[in-house]
Amino acid sequence: MSIGPAWYLGLAAVLFAIGAIGVLVRRNVLVMFMCIELMLNAANLTFVTFSRVLGDIGGQSLVFFVLVVAAAEVVVGLGIVVAIFRRRKSTTADDLHVLKG
């Protein structure tokens, strides 16, 4: 048996916050994707912790699906990045200037 779930959940919340800050603060598109992965990992850690505390296998199954989604998302996201940036010099979001928002 492991230590109390509060520590795990707190760690996951902090991990989620770091990921969210990264997405909002960083301008490099690839790093932004990595930060989204951090957020998904925080959610996974939360699922597994709840699964242990509740004694419910369902939480672990959910992690499985989140993993699949993350994989599909990364394939498409990196595809978009490659499609755009193979003609350009840098991978920062600020170079996206055609659309003014």
């Binding site: 989620f16 969210a20 932004m32 957020m39 989140v66 978009i80 659309l99």
Partner: peptide
């Protein structure tokens, strides 16, 4: 560019949703 913006904000919101 539209795709990239949609992707970043969309996956961000997905991560929030899954949490």
């Amino acid at each position: 560019e539209a795709a990239l913006k949609y992707f970043i904000l969309g996956s961000f919101s997905s991560a929030v949703f899954v949490y």
